[in-house]
Design a protein around this nucleic acid. Sequence first.
RNA 1: GAGGGUAUAGCUCAGUUGGUUUAGAGCGCUUGCUUGACAGGCAAGAGGUCGGCAGUUCGAGUCUGCCUAUCCUCACCA
Length: 873
Amino acid sequence: MSNLASRYNPAEVEEKWYAHWEYRGYFHSEPDDREPFSIVIPPPNVTGILHMGHMLNNTVQDILVRKARLDGKNACWVPGTDHASIATEAKVVRMLREKGIKKSDLTRTEFLKYAWEWTDKYGGIILKQLRRLGASCDWERTAFTMDDSRSSAVIQAFIDLYDRGKLYRDYRMVNWDPEGQTVLSNEEVLYSDETTTLCYVKYRVEGSDETITIATTRPETIMGDTAIAVHPDDPKYARLKGQNVIVPIVNRVVPVIFDDYVDREFGTGALKITPAHDPNDYEIGKRHELPTVDVLNPDGTMGEAATVYIGEDREVARKKLIRDLTEQGLMEKTEAYTHSVGRSERTNAIVEPRLSLQWYVDMKALARPALEAVISDHIQFHPERQKNIYRHWMENIRDWCISRQLWWGHRIPAYYYKDKVYVAKTREEALMLAEQDYGPMLDSHDLKQDEDVLDTWFSSWLWPITCFNGFENEKELSYYFPISVLVTGWDIIFLWVARMIMSGFEWKNDRAFKEVYFTGMVRDQQRRKMSKSLGNSPDAVDLIDRFGADGVRFGVLSSSPAGGDLLFDEKLCEQGRNFCNKMWNALRLIKGWEVDNSADNQDNRIAIRWIESRLSEILADLEDDYMNYRLSDITMKLYSFVRDDFCSWYLEMIKPQYGKGIDQDTLDKTIRIYSQVCTMLHPLMPFITEEIWHNLKPREEGEDCMISCYPKASDRDELLLRSMRSVQNLVSSIRETRNTKNLKPKEILPIYVQDNGQNLFSDDRFHAILKKLSFISEISVVTDLPPNGSSILSDNEKYFLQYDVEIDLDAEKARILSDLEYAKGFVASVQRKLSNDKFVNNAPEQVVSKERKKLADGLERVKILEENLTALQ
RNA sequence: GAGGGUAUAGCUCAGUUGGUUUAGAGCGCUUGCUUGACAGGCAAGAGGUCGGCAGUUCGAGUCUGCCUAUCCUCACCA
C-alpha cells in the first residue's frame, strides 16, 4: 500500500507547483518561429480584489493558454491592471475624507501623491490572487495603464486622433456625476426604475387669477424655469397664447410657449422648461431662444442662482420646496411616480444633466470597419448572438465623451493660449506651436494645459496594442497581433470590446482579435448579479482555501456553458474537490500495486486496448469543444471519463486480486494512460494533474505535465467499443437484478450465456472480458442452463442468472409483459414508418436501413420476450 | 419605443446543419452497500405529453408563424 494520505491536500501542492512553473520560466513567452497564441487580460482595477467574475474570466483564459501551450504553440498571456480613473479616485477621496482631508484642500500634485501611495499599497493584490487560481500569465510583461509605456501611447493616440480630425470639443448637455464631480460617458450611466414624487405645481398666469398646473419630479429646479410649454394643438391651453406665467419661489415672469414635443396626455399636458437641467428642455430652449438659468453647483448642491437653500443638497432642497410650495398653496397634489433614474456606475450618485464643454471622439468613421469585421465573422464572436447586440449599438453609435474632471488618470495633452488649442506631447512642443502663431514674446504662463484627464477606457481601448508596447515597437506586436482570443464578460461589450476593435483598425489597420469569447455573468441562486453592494459574492480566496484552486476551477467551469450566465453554487466547488480526491485515490491505487511478472497479462491487453480507444474517442470530441468554447462540456466529459471509464471500468478490470501483483507491461501502460489523462485535464485543473503526473513515476528535470505534449486522437477499435458497451449493459442488468432481488453483492452467482451465434461470447476475443467481468460483477459463467435461472436481456442477448431466491412468478410475468408491450409498440411504429412509401423513397438510404435494423432488432426482442413469457407458464 | 435572448426532469443546463414511438448530464431525491484506492466513495432506481396553438415535411425538442411567460440591451420618460 502506498503511503499517500487518503485525502488530497491541495494547499501545499498548489504553492509548490506554481513556484516550480514560475522558476522554470514556463509562463514567459518571446517571439520565435512557433505559432503564436496571445491573450491579453481584461485589466482589473489596480486596487481591486478578486471576485467571482474574475475567477470565471481568468479560469477560462488560463485554460485556453495552457491548452495552446500543450498544443506546442508559443502562448503568451499578458497580465496587467487598469488605473480605473474614477473608481480609484473615489476610493482615495474616501480614504482622505476618513483622515479628515478634503480633496478640495489639496493641490493636484498633493492629491496625486496620495493616489500613488494608495496604488502602491493596494495595487497588485489582485495579481497575487490570480496566482492562487493558477493563472499562467507572463508576469514579466505585467502592464499598467498608467505606466510610462502605456501613458505615452495614450497621449500619442489622443494626438493622432486630433491630427486626423477625429477629436473635437463641444459645449453640450452631459451626464454629470455630482459626487465624483465629473462628466460620464453614456455607457457609464446605469438606469433603473425608482419611485419618486411627482408634484403638480400651480403657476400663476401674469395679470390674472388663473393658474396653470405643471407636473414635475424635480421641484428643486423650478428656480431655473424659463418657460412653460404646452402642445400647440391642445385646446385646453389655446387661450394662453402670448401670455406669461410667474415662476413660484423666484417670481420670475416667463412666457408660455407652444411646442409639439409636449405630450398632451402626460400629467396636465403642461411642462415646465428648465434648459439648464434637462436635455429636452435644453433643446426646446434653443428652439425658442430661452435663457438658461443653472441653479445647481457642480457638487449637486443648490447654487446662487437658486436664491433659496443655497448650499443645500438637491435632495434636501427638493423636500423643502415641496413643503414650501404646499404652504404657499401652490401644490395642487403629489403622487408616487416610478420612472427610470440614471446613476453613476462608480459612485452610484444620481446623474445630473449639465451643460459643459468636453472633448469628444467622432465615432462614426471609427465604427465602420469595426462593425464590418464582426458582421462578416472576420472577428468571430462566441456566442454568436452577441453580434446582434454589437450591431445595434454600432449602427446607432454616438460620439464618445472622453474628458473627465478628475486628477487620477492621463492628463489631456491640450494646451490653451488665448482662444487657440494646441495638442502636443509636451508643454514645450505646445509652446513652440503657440509661438508660431503669437511670436516668441508670449508669456508662457498664459499657456494652460487642460485640467482634465481622459476616460479610463481611453487607455484600455488601446490595450491589445499597448500590452506589446505597440506604439513604440513593431517587432513584438507584429508577432502577437491580432490577439488570438479575447475573453471577457458581455457587460463591457460597448465600454471596452467595441472600442478595442475600433482602435485596432484605427492604428493597426487590422482586427484586434481573431475571436472574442463572452462569458456570462456570475449570479447567485436568486439570479442576482454578484456585486459588492449586495454582498452576495463569496470570497474568492476563501473558496480556494476550502476547495483548492482546482476544485474551484472545476466548480466555475462545470456550469459555464459557452456564454450563458452562471448560477454559482458552492456545491459545484465541492464536487470539484471530490473529483480531485477521486483522481488522487486512483493514483494511490496504482502506486500500491506490486509488480509480479508471473501474473498473466493476457486479459489486460483487451482492457488497455479498450481504454485507449475510449481516450481516442473523447479526444476528437474535446478538440471540437475547444473550437466552440464549450468548456463545461469539456469538463463534464473528462469528469465522466475519469470517474466512469478509467476508474470504474478500466482500473477495476486490471486491478489485481487481493494479495496479487500486476505485470510490468500493464502497469507501464496504465501509467502512460493516466499521464495522458493528466495532460488532457491539465488546462482545467493544473495543480492536481501536475502532482499526479510526478507521482506516477520518476520524471526528468523539466519533464512537467504543464509542458507535456497534448495527446492526439489515434485509431480506435470500434468493435471493441461497441462490445464493451454491451458488456456494461449486461453488468448493469446483473447489478439491477441483485438489487431488486436483495442479493448479497459479493455472492457469486452462476450465469449461463445462451449462445445465439451472435452474442459477445461467441467471439474468442472477448473471453478475456468475460473473465474480467466475472471479477467485477461477482459471477461465474456456467455451461449448463441452471435449473432455477432468471433471464436477463442485455441488448438482444439472453443470459440466465441463477440465485437462491424464490421467484415471484406474477411479478416476473408483469415485468416481461410490460417490456413486451413496449417492444411491440416500438415495432409497430417502425413498421408504420417503413410501410410508408414516401418515407422509403424520400429518406436517405442510411436512415431507411437504420430503421430496418431497428425493426429486425425489435422483432427479435419481441420473440425473446415471448419465449421468456412462455417459459414462465 | 427599437432590438435581442430564453422556455426540455424538483433545480441548473446539454441536445452541434430536422431522422430512435426508448430525449441526456450534473446536483437533489429513493434504495442497497464499509477489512482490499476513494463514504469527499460504490451500485441501482424513480422522475419529462421538450411553454401553448397552427404550419412546412415521409419525419419536428430541433425549421416557420402567431400567442403566452420571462430575461437582457439601447433609447425615452414631466
